[in-house]
Design a binder for these strands. Structure first.
Length: 814
DNA sequence: AGCACGCCGACT
DNA sequence: GTCGGCGTGCTC
């Protein structure tokens, strides 16, 4: 047999940045000889795509070798490679596929979600002159330039005539794909010369060349290592010019050195040492440690009351992972990712810690990401998306406050970080620790069934710390007695007491399902959003009326648009209104208000907390955001102004959320030496969520809530999937939803329950109409395929403006 | 998504 | 006749 000589060449399979169902598959491209083996799966590239060969970004997902006889005539070639090394490793590429399957989203969206946003491509089009064009057009449109921006031509309405020139091939359209990620560099210098050679150079200097002499001596001391120019100018007082001169004479070289934008560089982190563990902590630590040693992908549920020292267990578990040469991911909710939190981890692990959260600039996020990728940081602390940290040898994953709904992403891809954490733990054969004082019912139930292993910390770690006393105030009685302010008599008394004693008070206004809107006292007219079926909210700081759904803004009216009455006032309990009421009651007190308005600016959140921590204010008034992780020893009173607004929402998790919030906020009162007090104002004083929160009885709440979930056929007894259609035309959205329900009825077993179709609580948002259906089921092997078919079939209508989304285990049912 | 192609009505 | 409207198919 004649040996056939095979010329090896490569094909790359690429997912392109065109998020549609039809293009949600890998496309094959030729790898040029020049690129050859340098191209690997997980790299970003630009490829020509479609009829016009416009350039789009893509991700290489696999490489195939090809022999001479592979037919490749129809294949195009990769245009540009953006990365020197892959930005997604094999594990994350597999995870992206898993995510696509589980969340019914496009692969490209999943891939992009896993990376810092700077890595997403930005597109620009240019019109380039390639032949003689009429003088007049050249002047008017092109300003005699070779190339002008497509967008500008379009804006000035010259596009039709330019397109005619394109037909005649006198101009071309050039597609540009750019990646925004920029590595920040700093200039440094080093020498490759030996000590002796440097000495010779030094001898050759003129007597007057003092600075050069100094620089050469310094170079000798560096022993070949490099030094930044900045450092040299500061330390030695040598000018940049002298160093440049050295380069010219050839005894040193200047290089660009990569640096990280360190968002925490201004701070000093005091090193902390491991604390002695309580027996309960010790047991929890030993269990996770053993799982690490035995490479078991166990999921632990660490149920620990406030102050029981969960964080110390995390810290020591992470330390063990590091000892084993492995890495760790710690997820915390975005709002808990405070400087104090970061401090605890940086204090223990120093520069090994990378922090990923939304407060960082795009560049800073990218740098933290790169630090992880290059293994300069082995501990990742971050919010939801930190679950995608490019770590290769995970030793442990920890999710703090595991019950937080912010771990579920509310936009596509609608992934839950907890599920992906468990997936990664299986990949790495390492444990996951889910920690909470008030675990989600789902997780607690799984621990009951033995799917997760339950670890309990029900003792406070420090002996002096006692649980605060919680008092429930029945606001129905209060209202009967007085004119109906926000504050009960008891709460006002207690605040006054704290002011007298120079102690601090935290007041929380539960804003779920609440807003301050504008209403006419004469005719009852409420100012609505023109685009959505919801009333506009008053924002005093900007003096505007704003829609929380679509962002629409307008001026505050002085008279009622309907009856012209001047008695148009705001209504409801906004933080601003409460602040005014507070000032009226306590004119001399200092109040810090924390809400979306006062914390909009970068770092404002932190600044306000710092101010309060320095005792520059007596009262901290805020929304949910103050419930978490702030430990101020001088706070001895916590007031919850309206505990139950969330209870009235038509959401089966309403009780759970209320219980969690009250438990959490109660933990903010009182520290070591000063006993704390909590006052909860409510219209439902007998509600079980409030009663169990008063006793800080999680297990009691869990048992009671499970009964209710069982009766209502809700999770964790049932799985849920939510389908939403939306369209500019209400009938189209409704019709499609009804059709989908018909289809589902065909395949669902009688044990499953369909809720809907119903219009969403807010029917119209941004002039689109929303309809939904929820499927509750225990076992439906055919459901996934059916949902996929529904998506597929809807494609025709998607063309006509229909949008369809599938949310597996949704967090919001309203 | 966004481009080409093709089929229709309204113009120079 | 042709310019440009939009509905449809396809993208390695």
């Amino acid at each position: 047999m004649k040996a056939r000589r095979i010329k090896v060449d490569y094909l790359a399979n690429i997912i392109v940045d065109v998020p549609t169902m039809q293009t949600d598959i890998p496309y094959s491209y030729l790898v040029s000889k020049a690129l050859g083996k340098n191209i690997q799966p997980g790299m970003r590239v630009a490829v020509p795509f479609g009829n016009g060969n416009r350039k789009v970004q893509g991700f290489v997902v696999s490489i195939e070798e090809r022999s001479d006889d592979t037919i490749v005539d129809h294949l195009k070639e990769i245009d540009t490679v953006f990365d020197l090394t892959p930005v997604l490793n094999e594990e994350l590429l597999i995870l992206a596929e898993e995510m696509k399957r589980r969340t019914f989203s496009f692969k490209i969206t999943c891939l992009q979600t896993m990376l810092p946003s700077v890595m997403k491509a930005s597109y620009q089009k240019w019109i380039r002159v390639v032949d003689e064009i009429p003088e007049e057009i050249n002047a008017r449109v092109f300003h005699y330039l070779d190339e002008v921006s497509f967008d500008e031509v379009e804006k000035s309405n010259y596009l039709p005539e330019v397109m005619r020139l394109k037909q005649e091939e006198k101009v071309e359209i050039r597609y540009e794909v750019k990646s925004k990620n920029r590595v920040k560099t700093i200039q440094a210098f080093a020498t490759s010369l030996t000590f002796e050679r440097l000495e010779e150079e030094r001898m050759m200097l003129r007597k007057s060349a003092k600075k050069k002499n100094q620089l050469l001596l310094y170079l000798q001391s560096l022993d070949g290592k490099s030094c930044t120019i900045k450092e040299a100018t500061e330390k030695l007082g040598i000018s940049r010019q002298t160093i440049k001169e050295g380069e010219k004479q050839g005894w040193l070289t200047i290089t660009e050195q990569e640096i990280y934008r360190d968002p925490y560089k201004e701070r000093f982190f005091e090193r902390t040492v491991p604390l002695k563990l309580t027996p309960q902590q010790e047991l929890a630590y030993q269990k996770t440690r053993r799982a690490m040693d035995e490479e078991q992908a166990t999921t632990f549920l660490l149920e620990g009351i406030t102050g029981s020292g969960k964080t110390e267990v995390y810290l020591q578990s992470i330390a063990h992972a590091l000892e084993k040469g492995k890495s760790a991911i710690l997820l915390v909710p975005e709002i808990s990712l405070t400087p104090q939190m970061v401090q605890r981890f940086k204090g223990r692990f120093g520069d090994e810690v990378a922090v990923l959260h939304s407060g960082l600039s795009q560049g800073e996020k990218y740098d933290e990401w790169r630090k992880i990728e290059r293994k300069d940081a082995r501990v990742v602390v971050g919010a939801r998306s930190a679950i995608f940290a490019p770590i290769e040898n995970l030793g442990i994953i920890i999710i703090d406050e595991e019950h937080e709904t912010s771990y579920k992403q509310e936009e596509t891809p609608r992934y839950h970080a907890r599920d992906l954490a468990i997936w990664r733990s299986k990949y790495h054969h390492c444990p996951v620790v889910l920690g909470s004082a008030t675990p989600s019912l789902e997780s607690r139930a799984r621990a009951q069934k033995g799917v997760y292993e339950l670890l309990v910390l029900n003792e406070r770690a420090s002996a002096q710390a006692t649980l605060p006393e919680v008092e429930i105030i029945d606001m129905r009685k209060e209202y009967r007695q007085q004119t109906g302010g926000t504050f009960s008599t008891k709460l006002l008394e207690q605040i006054q007491l704290r002011l007298d004693k120079k102690e601090q008070t935290v007041l929380m206004l539960n804003r779920r399902g609440y807003s301050s809107f504008l209403m006419c006292r004469d005719c009852g007219y409420v100012l609505p959003c023109p685009n959505c079926d919801i009333s506009l909210t008053l924002h005093m700081d900007t003096k505007k009326m704003k829609c929380h759904y679509c962002g629409h803004e307008e001026h505050i009216p002085h008279t009622c648009p309907v009856c012209n009455s001047k008695k148009i006032r705001y209504y409801g309990t906004g933080t601003q209104k409460v602040e005014e009421e507070l000032k009226k009651n306590f004119p001399t007190s200092n109040i810090i208000r924390m809400d979306v308005d006062t914390t909009r600016k970068k770092g404002a959140h932190e600044r306000l907390l710092q101010k309060f921590g320095n005792q520059e204010a007596d009262i901290l008034l805020g929304t949910q955001m103050i419930a978490k992780g702030l430990d101020f020893p001088n706070v001895t009173l916590v007031g919850v102004l309206n505990a139950d607004t969330a209870l009235n929402l038509p959401d089966f998790r309403a009780s759970e959320k209320t219980f969690q919030l009250l438990t959490q906020v109660s933990g903010r009162a009182g520290r070591a030496d000063k006993k704390g007090e909590v006052i909860v104002q409510t219209f439902n004083p007998k509600h079980y969520a409030i009663q169990f929160a008063q006793d800080q009885d999680y297990e009691g709440f869990y048992k009671r809530e499970m009964q209710i979930r069982h009766q209502g056929n809700y999770p964790p007894y049932f799985f849920t999937v939510q389908i939403i259609t939306n369209h500019e035309d209400e009938t189209v959205a409704a019709k499609k939803m009804f059709q989908i329900v018909q289809q589902l009825k065909q395949i669902l077993s009688p044990q499953s329950i369909l809720l809907g179709p119903t219009p969403k609580a807010v029917l119209r948002v941004n002039n689109r109409y929303f309809y939904q259906t929820v499927i509750k089921y225990k076992h439906e092997p055919q459901l996934e395929a059916a949902l996929r078919a529904i998506l597929e079939e809807a494609q025709l209508e998607v063309r006509h403006g229909l949008r369809l989304s599938i949310d597996v285990e949704p967090m919001n049912f309203i």
